[in-house]
Amino acid sequence: QSSFEIPDDVPLPAGWEMAKTSSGQRYFLNHIDQTTTWQDPRKAMLSQMN
């Protein structure tokens, strides 16, 4: 996992939702293809902008 956290005020891509496990770990739900991931989809968006 990357060492940086994206602030919560940065919006997720369309169709995504952020949730937390009972222990507080963030994960991401993709409602478009109905998958979940630990990888923040905003990181991919930001790396494409740089």
Rank of each mutant, 00 (worst) to 15 (best):
R26A: 08
D33H: 07
D33M: 14
D40H: 04
S23I: 06
F28Q: 03
D8K: 07
M45G: 12
P41F: 00
D9A: 10
P7E: 08
K43N: 10
F4V: 09
N50E: 10
D40M: 01
Q39W: 10
M18K: 08
P11S: 08
M49P: 14
M49K: 15
M49A: 13
A44L: 12
D33K: 09
S23N: 14
M18Q: 10
Q25H: 13
D40P: 03
Q48T: 14
D8Q: 07
F28M: 01
T37W: 01
S2Q: 07
A14Y: 10
E17P: 03
W38S: 06
L46P: 14
D40F: 01
W38N: 03
Q1W: 03
P13A: 01
H31D: 04
Q39H: 14
R42Y: 01
E17H: 04
Q48V: 08
S47V: 11
R42V: 00
R42W: 01
F4R: 10
Q25S: 13
M18T: 07
D40V: 00
R26Y: 03
A44S: 12
D9P: 04
N30V: 00
D9R: 08
E5L: 09
P13K: 02
P41D: 00
Q34H: 07
S22H: 01
S47K: 13
K20W: 11
Q25R: 08
I6W: 04
N50C: 09
D8H: 11
Q48K: 15
G15H: 11
P13M: 01
T36I: 02
I32G: 06
N50A: 10
P7Y: 08
M49Q: 11
S23L: 11
Q39E: 09
W16M: 00
Q48W: 07
D40L: 00
K20P: 03
P11R: 06
Q25C: 09
L29G: 02
E5S: 14
E17R: 04
P41R: 00
Q25F: 07
I6H: 15
Y27V: 05
Q48G: 13
H31R: 09
S3R: 05
M18S: 10
P13W: 00
M45N: 11
W38H: 05
V10A: 12
Q25M: 10
A19G: 08
S2E: 09
I32F: 00
E5V: 12
V10L: 09
N50L: 07
P11H: 14
S3L: 01
S3C: 05
Q48A: 12
Q1I: 15
P13V: 01
S3E: 08
M45D: 15
N50V: 08
E5P: 11
T21R: 02
P41W: 01
R26I: 13
M49S: 15
W16H: 03
S3P: 12
V10F: 08
S2G: 11
Q48P: 14
T37E: 02
Y27R: 01
I32C: 12
F4A: 08
Q25Y: 06
K20D: 10
S22E: 14
D40E: 00
D9I: 09
F28A: 02
D33F: 15
M49T: 15
L46I: 14
Q48F: 05
H31G: 05
W38Y: 12
G15P: 03
G15D: 06
P41S: 01
S22F: 06
P41Q: 00
N50S: 13
W16T: 05
M49E: 15
P11F: 12
D33S: 12
A19W: 04
P41G: 00
A19Q: 09
Q39L: 09
D9F: 06
K20E: 13
S23M: 07
R42C: 02
D8C: 07
A14D: 14
A14H: 09
D40Y: 01
F4C: 12
L46V: 14
D33T: 15
D40W: 01
G24H: 07
N30Q: 00
S3I: 07
N30R: 03
T35P: 01
S47L: 13
W38R: 05
S2T: 07
W16V: 05
R42Q: 02
Y27A: 02
M18V: 10
W38E: 07
D33V: 09
T35G: 03
Q25E: 15
D9H: 12
P41N: 03
Y27E: 04
K20R: 13
N50F: 10
Q39I: 08
K20Y: 14
S23F: 09
V10D: 11
E17W: 01
F4M: 12
F28D: 03
L46W: 08
N30K: 01
E17C: 02
P7Q: 12
P11A: 10
F28S: 03
G24L: 03
T37V: 01
F4I: 15
G24W: 00
G24A: 04
T37C: 02
W16R: 03
E17K: 06
K43G: 07
T35Y: 15
F4K: 15
D8N: 11
S23A: 09
D8W: 07
R42T: 02
M45Q: 13
M49I: 13
S22C: 10
W16N: 06
P11Q: 03
Q34P: 01
D33E: 13
S47M: 14
W38K: 07
P7I: 13
T35I: 15
W16D: 03
S22I: 10
P11N: 12
A19D: 09
I6T: 10
